[in-house]
Each structure stands twice: as C-alpha cells, then as structure tokens.
Simulated scan of single mutants.
Amino acid sequence: MFGNYLIGLREGLEASLVVCILIAYLVKTDNKSRLTPVWTGVAIAVALSLAFGALLQFGSSTLTFQAQEILGGTLSILSVGLVTWMVFWMRRTARHLKSELQDKLDAALALGSGALVITALFAVGREGLETSLFIWTAVQASGDGLRPLVGALLGLATSVVLGWLFYKGTLRIDLAEFFRWTGAMLVLVAAGVLAYGIHDLQEGDILPGLRNVAFDISDTIPADSWYGTLLKGVFNFQPDPTVIQVIVWLLYLVPVMATFLAPARDRSSATASQPASQPSAE
C-alpha cells in the first residue's frame, strides 16, 4: 500500500505543481479571465486519465488468462520505461519547471483560449496518463485487492493538498531534493513492477523459465504473513522469483539507481544548494 501511496503522491504532486504554476502565473499577470480555459484543459486531462484507467481495468477483464498475462506484462514493462524517463526528466528540470511552463503559457495567451486549453491538457494529461498506467500495473503486481488502489488514491489526495499549500505559499521545500529521493524510491518500486511483468510474460508463454526458480524463501518470509504482505505491497517482493526475474531486476535496478543518484555534472554546487522557488498567488 505504501508503494502505491508513493506513486500517487509523486505523480500527483507533479500534476498539482503544474496546475498551481499555471494558475498563479495567470493571477499574477492580471489574466484571471483566462482561468476558465486552463481549468477546462485540466478537467479534460483528468477525465482522459480516469477513462484510460477504466479501460485498462475493464478491458483486460474480458481477455483470456494468457492474454491477460501478456497484456499485463507488456504494460508493466511500458510503465516502467515511462516512469524511468519521468524521474530522470523531473530530476533534471525540477528547478526550471516554473519558467518553462510560464514561457509556454505566454505563447498560449497570445494565441487565444484554445491554446490555453491545449497547454493545460498536455501539461497535466501526460502526468495523468503515466499515473494511470503505473498505478494500474502496480496494483496488478501487488494483487492485494483494494488496498493498493486506496493507497494510490490517498497519495493523490495528499498531492492535491500539497499543491494547494504551494499555491498559497504556506509550504516551502526543496523540490529538487524531494523529487530526487522520491524518484529513487520509485526506481525501487519500478524494479519490482518490471520483475512482475517478466513473470507475467513467462506465464503467458512469451518468455521461458517459469519453473526455473532462483530461490525460494517462502518458509522464511511467507507471502501471506504481515511482513510478506508489506514487502509485496511496497516493493512487489516475491519469495520465489524465477532466474530471469532476478537477472532483469538486477540489470534494471543497479545501473538505473546508480545513474539516478549520481551527482549531475551540469550543476554547480551553488545552484544545487539553492531552494526551489514555489508558485504563489500573492
């Protein structure tokens, strides 16, 4: 549940920050009359994200078991790729996100209301679709009923509250550091989702080695124990993974985590020590 809470918080906070930056900039530049197109774009993005999540859930339920495993495995790998790109992109652009969005908003203001709708739609929609896909694959990987979904919804709700506090200027944190460490946690969660996706493809007869188990510690960490459930909910832990799962997990986690945590070469120490500015309506 915590892993899915982290996904909802991390992904939802990005979308919340985008929205409050757009709204705060329009308010600051005396363009309150142009808020409606922005909110329209946000509403469309949210609706599309919910529809995409519903399509994944209900569409997959009509498939055969083998087709479900192939679909789940493929989407798990796709979602891990998208999330990996996202955490690296946000780590690189967190300090410049505000100015980049304001530049796009300036161009949209010059073009009219339709451009504002599209700007908000694309800015929020990308985050929403990524969130829907990753939450769906993480929930499928955990296989723990409604609790993973509840965790994700709580994370999204927390991100909305944090976004509102950012907008009001009552909450200030170093966003670069926040996204750095939550991103590292997401890389760990993504490694588990990737391993589960490989297992799905093995069960769908796309990959071999389903019976070739690397180790089995089910007696030490039973899957139905509270700590086994906790490890599975947070890290998608499996007590009896296949050899291919372990290999893929290591090949993903070790280089990606090392690269992500390595100091960025293009940043000076002075820049890295400065706190990220927060959007405010004042």
Rank of each mutant, 00 (worst) to 15 (best):
N236C: 13
I244Q: 11
A115S: 12
M185R: 03
L231T: 01
N212T: 07
A191K: 07
L175H: 03
L146T: 14
W226Y: 12
L154I: 04
T119H: 11
I173P: 10
T242N: 08
V248L: 06
D224M: 09
N236Q: 15
G169V: 06
G112W: 05
V193I: 14
P208Q: 04
S218K: 00
Y196G: 10
A115Y: 02
A258Q: 13
E127Y: 04
V187R: 03
I173C: 11
T242Y: 02
D174S: 00
E203K: 13
L133W: 12
L231P: 01
S132E: 08
I221V: 10
P255G: 02
W226D: 05
N236A: 15
I244V: 13
L149K: 14
A157V: 03
W181V: 11
P148N: 04
N236Y: 14
F122H: 09
E203Q: 14
L171Q: 10
I118D: 10
T220C: 12
W226Q: 14
G125R: 00
V124T: 15
P239G: 02
T170D: 15
G169T: 12
D219W: 06
T137E: 04
I206G: 07
P222C: 06
E177L: 15
D240T: 08
I135N: 09
F179M: 00
L188T: 11
D174W: 01
L116P: 08
D240R: 11
G204V: 00
V256D: 07
S142L: 14
F179D: 01
L171C: 09
E130G: 05
L250W: 02
L153N: 09
L253I: 13
Q245Y: 12
E127I: 03
N236D: 11
V150P: 07
L251Y: 02
W249D: 03
L194C: 05
P241V: 06
L201S: 11
D240C: 08
T131R: 08
H199Y: 12
N212E: 10
L201Q: 13
